[in-house]
Simulated assay, not measured.
Amino acid sequence: MSGLGSINELEKITMQNSPLHRLDGRIKLVVLLAIIVYAVYTTDILILALMEIYLLVLIFLSKLSFKDSFIKILLILPFGGAIALFQPFIHAGTVIYTLPLGIHITAQGLAFGLLLISRLVVSLTCIVLLSSLSPMQEVVDSFKKLGMPRDLAMIFSLFIRYLFMFYDELQRIRHAQASRNFDIFNKKTAYMWRLKQVAYTIAMMFLRAFEKGETVYFSMLSRGYSEESDIYTANKKLGINDFTFVSTTVALILFLELMKYMAFV
Rank of each mutant, 00 (worst) to 15 (best):
I7H: 04
S18V: 04
P19E: 11
I27G: 03
K28L: 07
L46Q: 14
I47Y: 02
M51H: 04
L55W: 02
V57P: 10
L58M: 14
D68S: 14
D68N: 08
S69K: 00
L74M: 10
L75I: 15
L77E: 01
L77F: 04
P78W: 06
G80C: 09
L85F: 14
F86L: 15
I90R: 08
A92Q: 05
A107W: 09
A111Q: 03
A111H: 08
L116K: 12
C126W: 03
L129M: 11
P135M: 00
S142T: 06
G147M: 09
L152Q: 10
F156H: 00
F164M: 07
L170M: 11
R172H: 10
I173D: 03
Q177G: 07
Q177Y: 10
R180M: 12
D183H: 13
N186G: 09
K188P: 06
A190P: 11
R194Y: 07
K196T: 09
A199W: 13
A203P: 02
M205E: 14
F206R: 07
L207I: 14
R208K: 13
G213E: 13
V216N: 02
Y217T: 05
F218N: 15
S222A: 15
R223G: 10
E228I: 05
T233C: 11
N235A: 08
K237L: 14
L238D: 05
I240M: 09
I240Q: 09
I240P: 07
T244Y: 07
S247N: 14
T248A: 15
L258D: 10
M259N: 13
M259D: 02
K260Q: 11
M262Q: 11
